[in-house]
Nucleic acid binder design. Structure first.
Lengths: 102, 102
DNA sequence: CTAATGTGCAACCTTGGAGTTGCACCTTAT
DNA sequence: ATAAGGTGCAACTCCAAGGTTGCACATTAG
Protein backbone atom coordinates (compact mmCIF):
# COMPACT_ATOMS: atom_id res chain seq x y z
CA UNK A 1 0.00 0.00 0.00
CA UNK A 2 2.75 2.44 0.97
CA UNK A 3 4.83 1.29 -2.00
CA UNK A 4 1.92 1.76 -4.39
CA UNK A 5 1.14 5.33 -3.32
CA UNK A 6 4.84 6.16 -3.18
CA UNK A 7 5.17 4.88 -6.73
CA UNK A 8 2.30 7.09 -7.87
CA UNK A 9 3.73 10.11 -6.06
CA UNK A 10 6.41 10.69 -8.70
CA UNK A 11 5.51 12.47 -11.96
CA UNK A 12 8.04 10.49 -13.98
CA UNK A 13 6.61 7.22 -12.71
CA UNK A 14 3.06 8.32 -13.47
CA UNK A 15 4.12 9.11 -17.03
CA UNK A 16 5.70 5.69 -17.29
CA UNK A 17 2.47 4.07 -16.15
CA UNK A 18 0.44 6.12 -18.61
CA UNK A 19 2.70 4.98 -21.41
CA UNK A 20 2.80 1.35 -20.31
CA UNK A 21 -0.99 1.30 -20.09
CA UNK A 22 -1.02 1.80 -23.86
CA UNK A 23 1.94 -0.29 -24.96
CA UNK A 24 4.77 -2.42 -23.70
CA UNK A 25 8.19 -0.78 -23.85
CA UNK A 26 11.82 -1.08 -22.84
CA UNK A 27 13.69 1.20 -20.44
CA UNK A 28 15.58 2.75 -23.34
CA UNK A 29 12.38 3.48 -25.27
CA UNK A 30 10.74 4.99 -22.20
CA UNK A 31 13.76 7.16 -21.46
CA UNK A 32 13.41 8.78 -24.88
CA UNK A 33 10.14 10.36 -23.75
CA UNK A 34 11.51 11.68 -20.46
CA UNK A 35 14.16 14.29 -19.63
CA UNK A 36 16.19 11.82 -17.62
CA UNK A 37 18.75 9.16 -18.32
CA UNK A 38 18.01 5.54 -19.06
CA UNK A 39 19.42 4.54 -15.68
CA UNK A 40 17.00 6.85 -13.90
CA UNK A 41 14.13 5.23 -15.79
CA UNK A 42 15.45 1.82 -14.82
CA UNK A 43 15.33 2.86 -11.17
CA UNK A 44 11.76 4.07 -11.57
CA UNK A 45 10.80 0.80 -13.22
CA UNK A 46 12.37 -1.07 -10.32
CA UNK A 47 10.24 0.97 -7.92
CA UNK A 48 7.13 0.22 -9.96
CA UNK A 49 8.08 -3.42 -9.97
CA UNK A 50 8.52 -3.46 -6.19
CA UNK A 51 5.06 -1.94 -5.93
CA UNK A 52 3.69 -4.72 -8.13
CA UNK A 53 2.56 -2.27 -10.79
CA UNK A 54 4.85 -3.49 -13.54
CA UNK A 55 6.19 -6.78 -14.80
CA UNK A 56 9.48 -7.31 -16.65
CA UNK A 57 10.29 -10.09 -19.08
CA UNK A 58 13.46 -10.41 -21.09
CA UNK A 59 13.21 -10.96 -24.84
CA UNK A 60 16.61 -11.43 -26.40
CA UNK A 61 18.84 -8.54 -25.46
CA UNK A 62 16.04 -6.26 -24.40
CA UNK A 63 13.81 -6.22 -21.34
CA UNK A 64 10.21 -5.34 -22.02
CA UNK A 65 8.01 -3.88 -19.30
CA UNK A 66 4.28 -4.49 -19.01
CA UNK A 67 1.64 -2.95 -16.75
CA UNK A 68 0.15 -5.08 -13.97
CA UNK A 69 -2.61 -2.85 -12.64
CA UNK A 70 -3.75 -5.11 -9.80
CA UNK A 71 -2.39 -3.00 -6.92
CA UNK A 72 -4.20 0.02 -8.32
CA UNK A 73 -7.43 -1.62 -7.24
CA UNK A 74 -6.13 -1.88 -3.69
CA UNK A 75 -5.28 1.81 -3.73
CA UNK A 76 -8.74 2.72 -4.96
CA UNK A 77 -10.25 0.43 -2.32
CA UNK A 78 -8.38 2.19 0.47
CA UNK A 79 -9.46 5.60 -0.77
CA UNK A 80 -12.99 4.26 -1.01
CA UNK A 81 -12.96 3.18 2.63
CA UNK A 82 -11.92 6.63 3.79
CA UNK A 83 -14.61 8.14 1.59
CA UNK A 84 -17.21 5.76 3.00
CA UNK A 85 -16.27 6.61 6.58
CA UNK A 86 -16.53 10.28 5.70
CA UNK A 87 -19.95 9.80 4.10
CA UNK A 88 -21.13 7.81 7.13
CA UNK A 89 -20.04 10.62 9.41
CA UNK A 90 -21.91 13.15 7.30
CA UNK A 91 -25.02 10.97 7.45
CA UNK A 92 -24.70 10.72 11.23
CA UNK A 93 -24.44 14.49 11.44
CA UNK A 94 -27.56 14.90 9.33
CA UNK A 95 -29.45 12.45 11.52
CA UNK A 96 -28.25 14.30 14.58
CA UNK A 97 -29.64 17.51 13.18
CA UNK A 98 -32.98 15.76 12.76
CA UNK A 99 -34.85 14.15 9.85
CA UNK A 100 -36.87 17.33 9.31
CA UNK A 101 -33.77 19.17 8.18
CA UNK A 102 -32.07 16.24 6.47
CA UNK B 1 -1.78 15.29 -7.96
CA UNK B 2 1.80 14.65 -6.91
CA UNK B 3 1.07 16.18 -3.51
CA UNK B 4 -2.01 14.00 -3.05
CA UNK B 5 -0.25 10.72 -3.80
CA UNK B 6 2.77 11.80 -1.77
CA UNK B 7 0.45 12.54 1.15
CA UNK B 8 -1.06 9.07 0.86
CA UNK B 9 2.36 7.44 0.63
CA UNK B 10 3.07 7.83 4.34
CA UNK B 11 1.53 5.37 6.83
CA UNK B 12 1.23 8.00 9.57
CA UNK B 13 -0.65 10.30 7.22
CA UNK B 14 -2.97 7.51 6.09
CA UNK B 15 -3.79 6.80 9.72
CA UNK B 16 -4.50 10.49 10.25
CA UNK B 17 -6.89 10.49 7.31
CA UNK B 18 -8.63 7.36 8.57
CA UNK B 19 -9.15 9.04 11.94
CA UNK B 20 -10.23 12.37 10.49
CA UNK B 21 -12.73 10.60 8.25
CA UNK B 22 -14.56 9.59 11.42
CA UNK B 23 -14.13 12.67 13.61
CA UNK B 24 -12.55 16.06 13.77
CA UNK B 25 -9.49 16.27 15.99
CA UNK B 26 -6.58 18.47 17.09
CA UNK B 27 -2.92 17.78 16.48
CA UNK B 28 -2.46 16.92 20.15
CA UNK B 29 -5.33 14.44 20.12
CA UNK B 30 -4.08 12.82 16.93
CA UNK B 31 -0.55 12.51 18.31
CA UNK B 32 -1.90 10.44 21.22
CA UNK B 33 -2.77 7.66 18.76
CA UNK B 34 0.59 7.68 17.01
CA UNK B 35 4.10 6.83 18.19
CA UNK B 36 5.42 10.26 17.24
CA UNK B 37 5.51 13.70 18.79
CA UNK B 38 2.86 16.35 18.42
CA UNK B 39 5.21 18.39 16.24
CA UNK B 40 5.64 15.51 13.82
CA UNK B 41 1.86 15.22 13.55
CA UNK B 42 1.65 18.95 12.92
CA UNK B 43 4.05 18.55 10.00
CA UNK B 44 1.98 15.72 8.59
CA UNK B 45 -1.15 17.80 8.91
CA UNK B 46 0.60 20.62 7.07
CA UNK B 47 1.43 18.19 4.25
CA UNK B 48 -2.18 17.01 4.14
CA UNK B 49 -3.30 20.61 4.09
CA UNK B 50 -0.96 21.43 1.20
CA UNK B 51 -2.46 18.50 -0.66
CA UNK B 52 -5.93 19.88 -0.02
CA UNK B 53 -6.98 16.81 1.93
CA UNK B 54 -7.48 18.56 5.25
CA UNK B 55 -8.85 21.85 6.50
CA UNK B 56 -7.85 23.62 9.72
CA UNK B 57 -9.94 26.06 11.73
CA UNK B 58 -9.03 27.57 15.05
CA UNK B 59 -11.49 27.34 17.94
CA UNK B 60 -10.25 29.14 21.00
CA UNK B 61 -6.81 27.90 21.91
CA UNK B 62 -7.03 24.74 19.85
CA UNK B 63 -6.89 24.09 16.11
CA UNK B 64 -9.30 21.48 14.86
CA UNK B 65 -8.62 19.56 11.65
CA UNK B 66 -11.33 18.31 9.31
CA UNK B 67 -11.17 16.05 6.25
CA UNK B 68 -11.71 17.60 2.81
CA UNK B 69 -11.81 14.54 0.57
CA UNK B 70 -12.15 16.37 -2.73
CA UNK B 71 -8.63 15.65 -4.04
CA UNK B 72 -9.17 11.95 -3.40
CA UNK B 73 -11.62 11.97 -6.29
CA UNK B 74 -8.93 13.37 -8.56
CA UNK B 75 -6.59 10.59 -7.50
CA UNK B 76 -9.20 7.95 -8.21
CA UNK B 77 -9.92 9.60 -11.56
CA UNK B 78 -6.26 9.41 -12.58
CA UNK B 79 -6.04 5.77 -11.62
CA UNK B 80 -9.24 5.19 -13.54
CA UNK B 81 -7.77 6.70 -16.70
CA UNK B 82 -4.78 4.40 -16.56
CA UNK B 83 -7.08 1.46 -15.98
CA UNK B 84 -9.25 2.47 -18.91
CA UNK B 85 -6.26 2.78 -21.22
CA UNK B 86 -5.13 -0.66 -20.09
CA UNK B 87 -8.57 -2.15 -20.71
CA UNK B 88 -8.71 -0.53 -24.14
CA UNK B 89 -5.37 -2.07 -25.01
CA UNK B 90 -6.56 -5.47 -23.89
CA UNK B 91 -9.68 -5.08 -26.05
CA UNK B 92 -7.54 -4.09 -29.03
CA UNK B 93 -5.41 -7.17 -28.50
CA UNK B 94 -8.49 -9.38 -28.41
CA UNK B 95 -9.81 -7.81 -31.61
CA UNK B 96 -6.42 -8.30 -33.21
CA UNK B 97 -6.56 -11.98 -32.37
CA UNK B 98 -9.91 -12.11 -34.12
CA UNK B 99 -13.55 -12.11 -33.03
CA UNK B 100 -13.70 -15.91 -33.22
CA UNK B 101 -11.25 -16.22 -30.34
CA UNK B 102 -12.40 -13.15 -28.41
C1' DC C 1 35.93 -11.92 -34.45
C1' DT C 2 34.43 -7.17 -33.84
C1' DA C 3 31.44 -3.47 -33.33
C1' DA C 4 27.18 -1.80 -31.76
C1' DT C 5 23.06 -1.96 -28.99
C1' DG C 6 20.62 -2.88 -24.63
C1' DT C 7 21.15 -3.91 -19.70
C1' DG C 8 22.51 -4.07 -14.99
C1' DC C 9 25.21 -2.74 -11.11
C1' DA C 10 27.82 0.38 -8.09
C1' DA C 11 29.58 4.76 -6.42
C1' DC C 12 28.60 9.33 -5.76
C1' DC C 13 26.05 13.80 -5.04
C1' DT C 14 22.26 16.58 -3.67
C1' DT C 15 17.88 17.45 -1.84
C1' DG C 16 13.89 16.76 0.74
C1' DG C 17 11.14 13.98 4.11
C1' DA C 18 10.37 12.41 8.80
C1' DG C 19 11.48 12.93 13.24
C1' DT C 20 13.37 15.22 17.28
C1' DT C 21 14.31 19.06 20.79
C1' DG C 22 13.88 23.72 22.35
C1' DC C 23 11.56 27.85 22.84
C1' DA C 24 8.20 31.64 22.37
C1' DC C 25 3.27 32.90 21.92
C1' DC C 26 -1.68 32.67 22.77
C1' DT C 27 -5.70 31.25 25.48
C1' DT C 28 -8.15 29.68 29.51
C1' DA C 29 -8.61 28.25 34.38
C1' DT C 30 -7.48 29.36 39.29
C1' DA D 1 -1.30 37.74 37.96
C1' DT D 2 0.13 33.15 37.32
C1' DA D 3 0.12 28.49 35.89
C1' DA D 4 -1.14 25.16 32.53
C1' DG D 5 -2.58 23.43 28.16
C1' DG D 6 -2.33 23.94 23.03
C1' DT D 7 0.18 25.93 19.01
C1' DG D 8 3.64 27.44 15.89
C1' DC D 9 8.25 28.17 14.37
C1' DA D 10 13.20 27.15 13.85
C1' DA D 11 17.37 24.43 14.06
C1' DC D 12 19.33 20.01 13.88
C1' DT D 13 19.99 15.01 12.71
C1' DC D 14 19.38 11.01 9.82
C1' DC D 15 18.33 8.60 5.86
C1' DA D 16 16.24 7.54 1.57
C1' DA D 17 14.81 9.20 -3.08
C1' DG D 18 15.98 10.93 -7.59
C1' DG D 19 19.51 11.82 -10.52
C1' DT D 20 24.09 11.39 -12.55
C1' DT D 21 28.49 9.06 -14.41
C1' DG D 22 31.29 5.09 -15.24
C1' DC D 23 31.96 0.52 -16.25
C1' DA D 24 31.17 -4.46 -17.05
C1' DC D 25 28.16 -8.04 -19.11
C1' DA D 26 25.06 -10.02 -22.60
C1' DT D 27 23.19 -10.20 -27.24
C1' DT D 28 22.80 -9.34 -32.13
C1' DA D 29 24.60 -7.42 -36.76
C1' DG D 30 28.59 -7.15 -40.17
Amino acid sequence: MTDVFAALADPSRRRLLETLARREATATELAADLPVTRQAVAKHLAALRDAGLVDAHRAGRETRYRLTPGPLEDAVAWIGEVGDAWDARLDALRRHLGPARG
